[in-house]
Simulated scan of single mutants.
Amino acid sequence: MQIHPSSMAGSRDSTRSRSVWSSRRRIHGCIRRRRGWRELEAAARQRTIGAEVSLANQRALRHKQGVMLRCLRLACILLLLAGSAEAGPLKLKTLQVGPRVYRDVTVLGSNTTDIYFTHAEGIANVKLKYLNEQLQKRFNYDAQAATEAERQQAEDDARYQATLAEELAARARKAMRDAKNAATTSDLNLADPISDKSLLGKPAPPLPTRWLGEKPELKGKFVLTFVWTPWSIPCRKQIPELNLLQRSFAEKLAVVGVTTEAEEDVRAVEGPVAEFALALDPEAKLISAAAITSVPHALLSNPNGIVVFQGHPAVLNTNNLSSLLKAFGGGTEEERE
């Protein structure tokens, strides 16, 4: 049977087109992922900048609130004094207080420390202690009572400023905390840290060096550290699931079981047999470094040794683990697209 040359050429062109199309898909997949991470980083930076701007705005607000409070206090006092003033208020052509001279003065009233009045340019108040002796007698000035009143007023102002400062600082801390949390969380995460003791985003603690059997090949792979103990029923229940994960992701994942129990206790376990590497940590160095207080416990670190998951191993089913591997670089080109 003979094959026409044009058919062979068409076949070669079709093969070449499929190859080019596959390459384009991989390139486009990489571009999409890189764009996605850049967008997440840009969003995180924007949230942090927003928190800093919010802090600056709150400082300006604090100053404005202080000014507004003083104006409001003065307005309230003037209203009260105007309402209680006699029918014929005291009027003065001039009132000299130190180097300042007020003209066309109408006294609205006074209290223990101050006199309140209108003048040609607006409203003002001055301390009675700065007036001449005649006016001090007119307004029943008592130096001792005025000193005590000023001391009390200064204490009240200090308490208000301290309360206002703490409130603004608390708002600023919350804004920065919200921005940090928003930058930390992601749809890709299975868990988020709520304590500085969490290992998420930090280097994984070193594995023990005593192995039951051959040491696994860890270079370039994700490492799922399974902290367990032979006597724990919940730990033994996780072994079949971890066996499945090891088989399903053998090329890019190494499951490592770590226990503080003796070798004879591990070998005497009845039930499912671990199909993954086992290591002994009799001094509990890994448990201490990871601050683990209950078992079973799992740490998943990426090929760079950074922890991307910490928690109960039951969370890492096939779907969740596959998503993590893809998100942090462990999937194939076809899976990532």
Results as ranks from 00 to 15, higher is better:
R159E: 06
R138H: 12
L61C: 01
E39P: 06
L135C: 02
P99Y: 10
L92I: 03
E39D: 11
A149Y: 01
E52P: 00
Y160L: 06
L135R: 00
N125D: 02
R33G: 07
C76H: 14
R103S: 10
Q46W: 09
E52Y: 03
K91L: 06
K174V: 09
T106S: 04
R59Q: 07
D156F: 04
D104R: 00
Q134W: 04
R59S: 03
F117V: 06
T106F: 00
V67E: 02
G109H: 05
A56G: 05
Q153A: 15
Y160E: 09
I77W: 07
Y116A: 07
D142C: 00
A170S: 08
M176R: 15
E86N: 13
L40I: 07
A172T: 01
L40C: 06
L61R: 12
A172C: 03
G88Q: 15
T163H: 10
P89G: 02
R34Q: 10
E41L: 13
A120Y: 05
A85Q: 12
L79T: 14
R173Y: 03
T94E: 13
A146S: 10
A56K: 10
V126L: 00
L78D: 13
L78I: 13
A56T: 11
K174G: 08
V126T: 08
L61F: 03
T112G: 07
D114I: 05
L78Y: 12
L81N: 02
S84I: 11
A44T: 00
A75K: 09
L168H: 11
E133W: 08
Q153S: 15
L95E: 02
E166H: 11
E41T: 07
A172Q: 00
T106A: 05
Y102K: 02
K93Q: 13
G88T: 15
A172V: 00
A82D: 15
E148D: 10
I49M: 12
